[in-house]
Structure formats: C-alpha cells, structure tokens
Design a protein around this nucleic acid. Structure first.
Length: 446
DNA sequence: AAAGTATGCGCG
DNA sequence: AAAGCGCGCATACTTT
C-alpha cells in the first residue's frame, strides 16, 4: 500500500524539525550548505505537496503491456524446458505466494537457483550467476529468453501498484537520506523511472513541462577539484570530454571515434573515477570488447592512456586514495557539506564529486523555488535534472528563466571558492515538453 | 509470522 | 565474483 500526500501531508514545521539535527550533522556550522539545506526544506515540501503529473491511462497501458509481453516470454521459456522440475522446487513454488498455482510444476524463472538448475538441465551449463552481465555471454536460447523476460516484466513489477490521484502521483521525497546529500525518492521512486514508462508522465491539458538537465556536472565538479587545465579548457570550449578520452585510449583522431568507443570510454572514466580496480577494469574491458586481455595488457592499452589528456585527474585520484589510506575518512564539498566515516577508497573518490554535484543542484532548486510564480510548480528533481510544470502560455518565459538559473546559480555553486583560473562554466539543456520522454528526443518546433 | 539477507535491476 | 558510487524495490530464501 502506498502513502499519499493526502494522508501524509508534509507540514513544513514538522519537516523542518525533523531535519534540523540532520542538517547540523551534515555540515559544519555557518557554512553555506547549512543555509542551503534550510531553504531547501521549503522546496522539498512544495514538491511533495504538488505531486508529479501522470496520465493514468498511459500508465495502465504501460503496466498492462509489460505484463502481457512478459507472459509471452514466459511461454517461450517454458517451451525450452520440458523435463520435470525437482520435487524440492515444486514444493517451494507451492508455498510461494507469488507463484500462480498452475505454475507450481514449472521452473520458477524468478528464482536464480532454479534458473541455474535449468541451465544445467537443458544445456549442461554451470553458470556462476544469472545476472545480465553473465547471460549475454551464454550462447543458448534460454539466456536470451530470460533476459527478454526480465526486461519485459520490469515496468509491471515495479509500477503496477502506483496510485494516481487526480492525475498526479504523490511520492515521498527525502531531503537528507542519501549519505552524499542527494535527494532520494520512494513510493514510487520517481528518480528511477525506466525509459519505457517516461511517456506516462505528461503535462495536463493547458500546461507544459519545462525540463532542464545539467550537462556533465560531475565532470565539471571534478575539474574544480583537480584543477586540470586541459579539462577546464575542453569544458569551456564545449569539446566532448569522453570523446577525447576515447581518442586517447583507442589511438584515434578525435573525429574518428565511433559511438560505441565513446560509450566505452565514458564507462571506463567513471569506473576509474569511482575507484574501479584493475581487475574490475579488465573485466569491464573484456566484456565490452569481447576480447580476453590480461590485466597487464589492459593496464598498458586502456588504463594508462585513459587520463593522458588530463594528467591532473590521475594525480587527484591518486592523492585522494593515498589520503584515505592515511586515515582521512572525512569528505567535504566546497559549500561545506560533510560526510563522516567514508567507508572505502572508491567512496572517498566518489563522495566529493557526487556531493559537489548535489550542492549545485540543490542551489538551483532553491533559487528556482524562491523565484517561482504562483502558477508554476517544481514537480521533480532527478539528481542533475529538474522538472517544472507551468501554464502553456508561460512556457517560453519559464524555459528562459529556468535555463538562466541553471547556468547562473549552478555556475556560482560550482565555482564557490574556486580560484579564478580553475573555474568552469556550467551548461544545461532545457526543453519545453508535453511528456517526460521528450526530454531525450526534443521536438524540432514548438 | 516477522525480520533479515541475497540476488537482480532500474535511475543518476 | 570481483573494491566503481549513490539510491528504491520486487522476489526468493533463511533466520528468528
């Protein structure tokens, strides 16, 4: 059963009270982030109260299609395995509440254990797990079918209980739950809406969604942290950082880089930035290229050239890791957001970047909320993205207004206390949409 | 029966 | 499986 704003109204006073301790615990007193979090309380309350607009018809359709597609995949899977399942499994299936009665005698494809058994039974294959990283390497129809089944079922499984009240869903927004300071959201998790469901989130008649997302904000925060001049210059000139890394890694000219090479480089950059070790790095390279490089080869061919264009990034990674090993388990952002007892080197690398980006987005959310017109509503905050619902007649004005805040306020927060020579611009993509799905496929003409 | 852990997967 | 981070959530299975 979900909770709704109607029964779970966020009284600003209570919200503030419940957050006071957390805010003080999160930050050093008098630092800008304390003021930021206090002002953010009103934005959070506002967002919680107004809800996210959704077309319940489209939502139902997405959920229904998901279920139907999954059922088709289930039938295909069953056809591949005719052998009787072990008594033990039948017994468990019978006990399980979520297995329909007529499926007790069949493999429960939701059970990793039974899936492993199925692979053994039908193909003599001994798999280590059934994850989506493992299955694509298995040359068997069951592997394909299972991946398709899981993907098909996803929307049904996660959103069939989503309740719509007068065209809105009222989620629970948490201002200070994530250890990096990021917002989180539950029931439903509006920050985790899968792509096929995005089209269900629509502006009601007479209104428009203005959607804006920060461009490469984590990379920009990184640039202010490490002070790499060529990284700063590339961001300033609007050059594609991941493409440049790809060119270095694959020994190509910038313009020769393919889409998949860029994607690969991007994954490797973030992996390394967040403390992926050489063994994990090697596994990822081999998974992406289909090759079987050794760790030494990968070090030479991929890891070494990775940050060649941006030497200070590597220096920063090495220094943060070394400091952590020396016992420095506290992390601060420029606005004074603090995380104590950072659990690992990877987290020590990730925290200043993720928390720094959070400061930027919360500064934007606060500025937007405080400058909001009475008829405008902030309906969503998805880490580097903000959704504002406005009357259709205000759409263009609101878009310009929001875009300006993203760049101006975002830039100020990003460069707070950063030496002039290391400062980076902030950029954003801002679009007027009818549905959330349009953000990635902006319409040409309004 | 309730609570906890593991697996798997979506989003940034 | 693995030392990439931060979340929420369904399902299976175990422990209390």
């Amino acid at each position: 059963m979900l909770e709704y704003a109607a029964t779970d109204v966020l009284h600003l006073h209570d919200l503030r009270k419940s957050l006071e301790a957390k805010i003080n615990d999160t930050a050093v007193h008098l630092w800008p982030v304390v003021d930021l979090e206090h002002r953010m309380i009103k934005a959070t309350a506002h967002m919680s109260a107004v809800g996210m607009p959704v077309d319940s018809g489209v939502l139902d359709e997405c959920v229904r299609e998901s279920r139907e597609e999954a059922d088709r995949k289930l039938t295909e899977l069953d056809a591949l395995l005719t052998a009787p399942v072990p008594e033990d499994y039948v017994k468990r299936n019978t006990k399980s509440k979520s297995v329909p009665e007529d499926r007790n005698e069949r493999v429960n494809w939701n059970s990793p254990e039974q899936v492993l058994w199925a692979f053994r039974e039908v193909a003599g294959l001994e798999l280590k797990n059934t994850s989506k990283e493992t299955l694509p390497e298995v040359d068997h129809p069951v592997a394909v079918g299972l991946l398709e089944y899981r993907q098909a079922l996803d929307v049904y499984k996660r959103f069939r209980e989503t309740k719509v009240v007068d065209g809105r869903v009222y989620a629970k927004w948490n201002q200070l739950k994530a250890r990096t300071g990021r917002m989180s959201c539950e029931k439903p998790p509006l920050q985790g809406i899968p792509e096929p469901l995005r089209r269900a989130f629509v502006a009601p008649a007479g209104k428009k969604l203005v959607v804006s997302d920060l461009s490469q904000i984590e990379i920009r925060v990184l640039a202010t942290l490490c002070g790499d001049e060529s990284l700063r210059a590339d961001l300033e000139a609007g050059r594609d950082v991941h493409q440049r890394v790809a060119a270095s890694v694959f020994g190509k000219e910038f313009d020769e880089v393919t889409k998949s090479e860029r994607k690969m480089a991007k994954a490797l950059v973030f992996g390394t930035l967040y403390g992926l070790g050489i063994s994990g790095f090697t596994a990822r390279v081999n998974a992406m290229t289909g090759a079987t490089y050794t760790q030494a080869q990968v070090q030479d061919k991929f890891r070494g050239p990775l940050f060649a264009p941006y030497p200070k990034v590597q220096e920063w990674v090495d220094r943060v890791a070394a400091d952590y090993e020396d016992g420095k388990q506290v992390s601060y952002t420029r606005l004074g957001r603090r995380r104590l007892q950072v659990p690992s080197v990877p987290a020590a690398l990730n925290t200043p970047i993720q928390a720094g980006a959070t400061d930027v987005m919360k500064a934007i959310a606060v500025a937007a909320h405080e400058g909001l017109r009475p008829t405008w509503e902030i309906v969503g905050l998805v880490h580097d993205e903000i959704l504002v619902l406005v009357p259709e007649s205000d759409a263009v004005e609101a878009k310009d207004w929001l875009h300006h805040i993203m760049i101006k306020v975002g830039g100020e927060a990003t460069n707070q206390g950063v030496p002039k020579a290391m400062q980076v611009e902030v950029d954003a993509g801002t679009h007027i949409c009818d549905t959330w799905a349009e953000k990635d496929y902006p319409r040409r003409s309004p």
